[in-house]
């Protein structure tokens, strides 16, 4: 008799537990307000990344096309996987002294892991994180970028 009672109580317990699950999915089915989807390409205008978002590394240039990079190579040294290559030149400055300036600050976006060591260790705060995340391309070589803009110069700090 006991086993028969168990048989039927099993059935009812089972059905009630199934109903509990169906209530949850049913509840969401009838409450479309719970939809949390952000419709990406449609919301492009309003989509704003957090200010600390690490999308890519950029070298901020001011209005006079000046940047702060001295070409010291600390970012290159600190980068764990060689995403940064710096090509420097030596040019004579106004006083006739030879001075190191960057020729190309090459940044391999294809390799970058956004660990932030370059931005953190840069002694002259020449690097920053950009907010752009739409980087997908058809050609791998497009992911190698030169961060300093053509014709840009180093910003001389007023001493």
């Amino acid at each position: 008799m006991n086993s028969i009672a168990k048989y039927f109580s099993d059935i009812f317990k089972g059905i009630s537990s199934l109903w509990a699950g169906m209530r949850i999915t049913g509840k969401y089915f009838f409450s479309p307000g719970a939809i949390v989807t952000q419709q990406y390409p449609e919301n492009r205008a309003t989509l704003k990344m957090e200010e600390r978002f690490k999308g890519e590394i950029v070298m901020p240039h001011d209005a006079n096309n000046l940047h702060a990079c001295t070409g010291c190579g600390i970012c290159e040294m600190n980068c764990p996987n060689g995403s940064i290559e710096i090509l420097t030149d030596r040019v004579a400055n106004a006083e006739g002294k030879m001075e190191r300036v960057i020729d190309k600050h090459i940044y391999h976006l294809s390799m970058c892991t956004f660990c932030g060591l370059c931005v953190k260790t840069c002694p002259s705060d020449a690097l920053a994180f950009g907010q752009e995340f739409e980087h997908a391309v058809f050609d791998r070589s497009k992911l190698t970028k030169v961060l300093n803009q053509p014709g840009s110069k180093i910003r001389k700090e007023a001493k």
Binding site: Y28, F29, P32, A34, I35, V36, T37, Q39
Partner: peptide
């Protein structure tokens, strides 16, 4: 569509 709405998403649109 049905499964999408149950799962709080939009589904194909």
């Amino acid at each position: 569509k049905v499964c999408a709405i149950m799962q709080n998403r939009v589904g194909p649109n």
